[in-house]
């Protein structure tokens, strides 16, 4: 038989998730890192950045559930996510996390805008700031906790890729929304994040072995290359003189980190649709860079 496996048919089911989930990977990170940045800004006495980052976080964190619900097969049953508390399910944990950080972030911003109860606001900001950290990385565990070769084999690197991406996007959002004299930390976060996500991606591609193909070919590959170009350009621009070019650079970073999430998202589809990925990772785990799990 020439076909791999059974008439070349997938051994695994490709995800049923639509683009919303790709976007959620982005908004979740943006919301989380922005919340943290807002808290840090507050602590470092930068109320301007704190408020702007807080508002970005609020927007993103409120967009997220909308995206998730839209993707459900039975949206009317969204609340079933809250039926149980289930640490074995990253998605369940994520739902609680989203609830917590959504509530705190939004409340904090409202208080900030209303300019009342500064103590409570700061407290909420720090809660949101802490919740923001897991919020921006848990989606990596969510993807990795599946049988999908592309996602599972990269379980070690994905969290860092997502963390870096979150920092980059949050930074970029800060740069775009904040008068530049207050946006220094955001700009640095953006640059660090952008660099970090490119590094993480490279490391990942090297360590996951043949599965890397799922990231570097097809639609995933195109997103991946787009991200490289965008990140590269933005890097150059953000160093360039002139507010306009820098703002443009920041915009490109946002696009770049979104593109990175989509390349990861799409890689999962490609890895499932071609049975070779499963066969290779399972037939010779070592060469495929996978610890044998029985």
């Amino acid at each position: 038989m020439t076909d791999p496996a059974y008439y070349g048919r997938p051994i695994l089911k490709p995800p049923v998730w639509k683009r919303e989930i790709g976007w959620y990977l982005f908004t979740g990170g943006l919301a989380g890192a922005s919340a943290t940045m807002s808290a840090l800004a507050r602590a470092s006495g930068n109320p301007v950045l704190a408020r702007r980052a807080g508002l970005v976080a609020t927007a993103a964190v409120n967009a997220s559930p909308a995206l998730l619900v839209k993707d459900l097969g039975r949206p009317e049953r969204f609340l079933n996510m809250m039926r149980v508390v289930k640490p074995s399910s990253p998605m369940n944990m994520g739902s609680w996390l989203l609830l917590g950080s959504g509530a705190s972030t939004t409340a904090a911003s409202l208080l900030d805008l209303a300019g009342v109860a500064p103590r409570l606001r700061t407290a909420l900001e720090s809660v949101a700031g802490f919740a923001g950290l897991p919020l921006s990385v848990y989606t990596a565990a969510l993807l990795a906790d599946t049988a999908n070769p592309a996602w599972h084999e990269s379980r070690r690197e994905l969290p860092f890729l997502f963390a870096a991406g979150a920092a980059a996007s949050a930074g970029a959002a800060g740069v775009l929304t904040t008068p530049s004299e207050h946006a220094g930390p955001a700009r640095r976060a953006m640059l660090l994040g952008t660099a970090g996500s490119q590094v993480a991606a490279r490391v990942m591609e090297r360590r996951v072995g043949r599965v890397a193909e799922a990231y570097t070919t097809g639609e995933a590959g195109r997103y991946r290359r787009a991200a490289q170009v965008l990140d590269g350009l933005s890097f150059a621009l953000s160093l360039a003189p002139g507010r306009r070019l820098r703002r443009l650079g920041a915009a490109l970073v946002l696009a770049g980190s979104a593109a990175t999430r989509f390349s990861v998202f799409k890689a999962g589809f490609q890895a499932a649709e071609d049975p070779r990925y499963v066969l290779e990772t399972q037939r010779n785990p070592r060469q495929a860079g996978v610890g044998t799990a029985g």
């Binding site: 089911k13 995800p15 097969g73 599946t146």
Partner: peptide
């Protein structure tokens, strides 16, 4: 109970 989140699909 299932709300069609689809998480189990790639998990299997």
């Amino acid at each position: 109970v299932c709300n069609g989140c689809g998480y189990c699909v790639p998990a299997c």
